[in-house]
Design a binder for these strands. Structure first.
Lengths: 355, 355
DNA sequence: CTGTTAGCGCGTTCAC
DNA sequence: GTGAACGCGCTAACAG
């Protein structure tokens, strides 16, 4: 009896506190034990239809909502995954996060997003706070390879790398090299002999692969092709600056391949500003195929990456590891292919004369 | 002794399990109590330098990381906030989320992102899973006003609305009306008499306010101005379609005001495709000032919204409510001002003749 | 200054 | 079919 009194008192206090009801409040109201409430809610074990109804009624009446922290404490599962991103700018990331969130929610998981991690120490701080908070981690850190902390954490929490140099960890990567090589080949096939490449940051893994693809295609085509390279930082502004420099050089290229669409946009703007007709006066290509690419004038020819697919696959793979700890996927590297989206921005170098 | 044995055994088992050490493991290794470990880690209460060091050493040796769920269970705080978004497409959202994440992290909070909520029932499901998981919620739901669930949940968990019709809940909103009115006024000032407005979805609050701003400015300028309206859905594609329809109409406008930049981009593309010179043949204006706006040709004149500021303020306000439950901010509505970013895309209607 | 203990809210063996 | 009791990992009184 003393027990019952105390519970009632607690219950009253909670309501005054604006705190919502606990499983015990529900049990009291339904006249059953907390165990029964738990079972009724989770559909575990056989149970009288009547008891079940009584519980459900009490739940409704009290507007009971299970406490996530308490729940994950017992079941040792938070139903949350985290995605650690470098910097979140431009359409690429909104597409990616959107797809990940969708995939995660479809499998009953929440998505914790943490961005602006170009700094390793800053990333460590976040990683440490993740234990007991998430069931799995997706790390996109093209600027720096995963540190020791991530490795040791990955032993406990399933981790998948995205476009990051992987050593000992499962990863999913865009096939940057092949895509860039193909686009460069396309440009060469169009007859271009002087090609320029606007690259990403030197220490960025994606950027490096794309540059290698460019170089490889150039070499394969023989010495007669000249390639010049300018480093950008994946922003529109850097694409703009790159072209400004390029135009003041004595030997102009006839085609420009930007390592991502944002830089291509900046490049196109600089070209227009300099009254270079597009695509007649200069071919321009990008990488990513962000949604806006096809709405530019001329429509941007670019290396198409299925961004939603990339996000979806990363989540699927992670959750498989989360749900089947027994057979964790090894450090397998999975490659996401690219295709060429040939649109209007790349003509042949002869166009400058004929058209 | 039996006690000690058990703990040691547990510890061993954990290591075999790949689960990391608990606070008790640390206490054992350091030869202190769990309370001391807790205090040392959280810097609570006075303590011998030596004890503190012993604890820290043990923490390092065991690679101990506190368990977030357990911690939030005791302190009744998760240090996580959630942002519920409608659909996440385009640069607007990446800028917003990025800013929110930054602001949240600066104040020691994590960010849970949940998008694609255009459906109310779907949103309810997510909301329910939030109890015990987050300390506060930011809801951006311009398509539908907050339901009963959000209201009752808001009684327990601090909530801030973003660009949503608010009743009884604190909110932060872009001053859509004033911004749209100002831009329309600018267009009229340029001499335009036939204006077209490409609006957002009819049931979208932002869209409605922007349309009202357009209409109000038109009315204020007198009857002589004609306004036509076409409904879009905030995507590039809908802006494109709107212009196609417009061009086939008998009376063409001389200026188009799109309710957001994405639609303006689509509109510009359709105009170019129809060989309408910009800005000479048609003035075009947008809303949002997404980063890419200034890299379009011509540079897009648009209503500038300080997106990062919007995100930052929403987080700041929410966390203030979280940290000072005593004086929760009332259902006050906070307005974020806009400014006109006058660039190149809007000429006067005479340009068509003279230029 | 430090250790003991009682919860936080829920899931889950075991008896009954 | 149902309930009592314990544990998840940590913090916050209260003792000492």
């Amino acid at each position: 009896m003393a027990e019952t009194d105390r519970r009632t008192a607690e219950s009253r206090q909670r309501r005054a506190d604006r705190s919502s009801a606990t499983i015990r409040d529900v049990a009291n109201r339904a006249g059953v034990s907390v165990a029964t409430v738990s079972r009724a809610l989770n559909g575990i074990g056989p149970m009288t239809e009547e008891t079940s109804q009584r519980v459900l009624t009490a739940v409704k009446a009290l507007e009971y909502i299970p406490h996530a922290a308490a729940r994950s404490m017992s079941i040792r599962r938070s139903n949350t995954i985290c995605v650690l991103l470098p910097e979140v700018h431009g359409e690429f990331f909104s597409e990616l996060v959107s797809a990940m969130d969708f995939a995660a929610r479809n499998r009953g998981h929440h998505l914790l997003v943490s961005s602006s991690h170009n700094d390793a120490s800053e990333m460590s701080a976040v990683l440490k706070a993740l234990r007991g908070r998430v069931d799995g981690i997706i790390v996109m850190s093209p600027e720096s390879s995963p540190g020791a902390l991530l490795r040791s954490l990955a032993a406990e929490i399933p981790t998948v790398l995205l476009n990051s140099s992987a050593r000992g960890l499962p990863s999913i990567e865009i096939d940057n090299f092949t895509g860039a090589r193909a686009m460069t080949g396309h440009l060469i096939g169009l007859g271009h002999r002087r090609l320029a490449f606007i690259g990403g940051p030197a220490h960025n893994a994606d950027a490096r692969e794309r540059r290698k693809g460019f170089q490889t295609a150039l070499e394969a085509a023989g010495r007669s092709r000249n390639g010049m390279e300018i480093e950008g930082d994946f922003t529109e502004a850097s694409g703009y600056d790159a072209v400004r420099k390029m135009l003041s050089a004595r030997s102009r290229p006839t085609a420009i391949f930007a390592a991502n669409d944002a830089m291509a946009v900046g490049a196109m703007f600089a070209l227009r500003e300099a009254a270079v007709p597009l695509p007649a006066g200069m071919a321009i290509a990008g990488f990513d195929d962000i949604p806006i690419a096809r709405y530019l004038t001329p429509q941007l020819t670019t290396v198409r990456v299925d961004i939603p697919e990339l996000g979806r696959r990363a989540v699927e793979r992670l959750l498989t590891d989360v749900e089947m700890p027994a057979e964790r996927s090894k450090a397998r590297k999975e490659l996401i292919g690219t295709t060429l989206a040939i649109r209007e921005s790349c003509g042949s170098p002869r166009d400058a004369r004929t058209g």
